[in-house]
């Protein structure tokens, strides 16, 4: 569906990383963790898919975070409180929320892949699941939402250059530093997802994928991912962006 969302607040939470709280009753009521909004940015041909970082139906808000990486996100970052954004969504399917018997979940986020995992972690902890979060960033000035995750469970921050928290990659965290895990959820850059899938290949996991999109609703076939070697595929915008780790081939 097409909706207009009004910017209620806006702040820079890390280097080139903007958080916007948007107001829209319908979207706040139906958004589930893992879904995305397809935002129209004035003067740009294609919409920008941005994941939902939080939703609060009691005050009719949804939160998005985005990184300024190009002209579109730069323009979006200049929007002011009170401005209205034309949005398609919430699009796609969210993370399947684990059932009550699975009570220890690992959350692995990388960079701008962290935001959808926040909304997910909130929903999981509300239903009694214990979460452990491993959040990777390039360096200290890119870190965001550490405090927000700490309120929900044990949180380990990793920076590639070691300027904050642990050093290296999210997959470097030793087994001893983590509790026993029933399932994992991950979102981040493709090399990270590949490493995550490999490291925790013995437990069920869900990955949220990103890709350059056209329509964002499943019509244009821009954002497909292979599911096998025989031409099988899924559309990230429509069938995903969340997939079970076994379901998709990460190239």
């Amino acid at each position: 569906m097409q909706q207009l969302l009004k910017i209620k607040s806006k702040q820079t939470v890390a280097l080139d990383t903007v958080e916007m709280v948007l107001e829209n009753k319908a979207v706040s009521q139906i958004a589930v963790p893992g879904q995305f909004l397809h935002l129209h940015v004035d003067g740009h041909m294609l919409r920008r898919p941005i994941s939902i970082a939080d939703a609060d139906p009691s005050v009719h808000t949804v939160t998005i975070l985005f990184k300024i990486l190009g002209e579109g996100t730069r323009k979006l970052s200049t929007y002011q409180i009170g401005d209205v954004i034309d949005v398609l969504g919430p699009n796609g399917n969210g993370f399947p929320l684990v059932n009550a018997t699975k009570n220890s979940v690992l959350i692995v986020g990388g960079g701008i892949g962290v935001p959808p995992l926040y909304y997910l972690a909130k929903k999981l902890t509300e239903s009694g699941v214990t979460i452990t979060a491993v959040l990777g960033f390039q360096s200290k000035e890119h870190v965001f939402y550490e405090g927000e995750f700490e309120e929900l469970g044990k949180t380990i921050v990793v920076t590639n250059d070691g300027s904050y928290g642990e050093t290296g990659f999210v997959t470097n965290i030793s087994k001893e530093a983590l509790p026993s895990i029933d399932e994992y959820y991950s979102c981040g850059p493709l090399p990270m997802l590949q490493a995550v899938k490999e490291r925790w290949n013995n437990i069920p996991g869900y990955l949220s994928l990103e890709e350059r999109m056209g329509c964002g609703i499943g019509a244009c076939f821009a954002c497909v991912i292979p599911t096998d070697d025989h031409g099988g595929y899924k559309k990230i915008c429509q069938d995903g962006p969340v997939f079970s780790a076994e379901e998709v081939q990460l190239k």
């Binding site: 041909m45 244009c220 497909v224 292979p226 595929y233």
Partner: peptide, 25 residues
């Protein structure tokens, strides 16, 4: 026959337009 098409990325935005290479999927 069915076709899978090209690898991704398949689209890119340009000034007042876009590039696509879906590959007849």
């Amino acid at each position: 026959e069915s076709r899978f098409g090209n690898p991704t990325p398949r689209v890119a935005e340009t000034s007042a337009g876009m590039l696509n290479a879906i590959g007849l999927q």
